[in-house]
Amino acid sequence: MSQQKSDYIDEVDVDESWDEHPSRDELEETVENLEDSGFEVEVVEDAEAALAFLQDEIPAESSVMNGHSTTLEEIGFMEYLNEGDHDWENLYGKVFSIDDDQARADARREAQTADYFLGSANAIARTGALVAADLSGSRVGAYPFAAKHLLVVAGVNKVVEDVETARERLHEFAYPFENERAQDAYGVESYPAKELVYRQEGTEGRTTVVLVEETLGY
């Protein structure tokens, strides 16, 4: 079942100014600094364009895995991965078809090395860094090294001034939403236990940040 931020908006007490969009100049500054940090950057108009970019970017027969991402749900990627017409190896579907908890955890760990791993960030610093966290590390574990290629999809509402502000957005805004989602989905509370500040990519072409000019995710 697709989960969106709007499903939890009445359950959390947050400052909605964290979802404000950057100015055009601020967005251009962000793109320039991300590229200077070694990231590929694609700016797209909306969710439909973001999905189309991912469909074109991932070659046929590639193994594809993702960490949980409300943004990927909202742009329709999860539905397309699980039900759409593609020639990818859907590692996500394989992993979560396993009934045994230990075997599923082992498969999930192995899937971190997918040809293409997809996710989002909790915040993006205009200085050219990504900030993301999760409880288990099953998402951010693939980001720095394990995955062959990484595709990070984020609405421009996640762009903030610097890394310090990005970490504030993670803890003050994104975490309350994720905590509600985790309780709804898994019956347990979440916590940003494993936090990644991704300041630079040293492998050319490995990591692409897809910035969507809409409010997406949290």
Score class of each variant (00 low, 15 high):
D13C: 04
D13V: 05
V14L: 10
D15S: 06
E16P: 00
E20Q: 15
E20R: 13
P22G: 09
S23L: 01
R24V: 13
R24Y: 02
R24N: 13
D25G: 03
E26Y: 00
E28M: 13
E29V: 12
E29C: 09
T30K: 05
V31T: 15
E32A: 15
N33A: 10
N33G: 01
N33H: 14
L34F: 06
E35L: 01
E35M: 11
E35F: 05
D36F: 01
G38W: 05
V41S: 04
E42Q: 07
V43H: 03
E45P: 00
E45T: 06
E45A: 06
A47N: 04
A47I: 00
L51P: 02
A52N: 11
A52C: 01
F53T: 05
F53R: 03
L54I: 07
Q55I: 14
D56Y: 01
P59A: 02
S62L: 02
S63I: 03
S63R: 05
V64R: 10
M65C: 06
M65Y: 15
T70M: 09
E74S: 15
E74P: 12
I75E: 07
G76W: 08
G76A: 07
G76K: 10
F77G: 03
M78T: 12
Y80G: 12
L81N: 10
N82F: 14
N82K: 15
E83F: 10
E83D: 11
G84K: 14
D85R: 07
H86V: 10
H86W: 11
H86T: 08
H86A: 12
D87K: 12
W88A: 12
W88R: 07
E89K: 13
E89Q: 12
E89C: 04
N90V: 09
N90E: 08
L91P: 13
L91D: 13
Y92Q: 15
Y92G: 15
K94S: 14
K94D: 14
V95E: 11
V95S: 12
F96D: 09
D99N: 13
D99G: 15
D99T: 09
D100R: 06
D101Y: 07
D101F: 07
A103T: 13
R104P: 05
A105V: 05
A105M: 08
R109F: 10
A111G: 12
A111F: 11
Q112G: 08
Q112F: 04
T113G: 06
A114V: 07
A114C: 10
D115K: 08
D115G: 11
F117I: 09
S120C: 10
A123L: 03
A125S: 14
A125Q: 02
A125H: 04
R126C: 00
G128C: 09
G128S: 07
G128L: 06
A129K: 05
A129V: 11
L130H: 02
A132T: 10
D134P: 05
L135G: 04
L135A: 12
S136H: 14
G137Q: 04
G141N: 11
A142L: 03
Y143E: 09
F145H: 08
F145P: 00
A146V: 10
A147M: 11
L150D: 05
L151K: 02
V152M: 13
V152D: 06
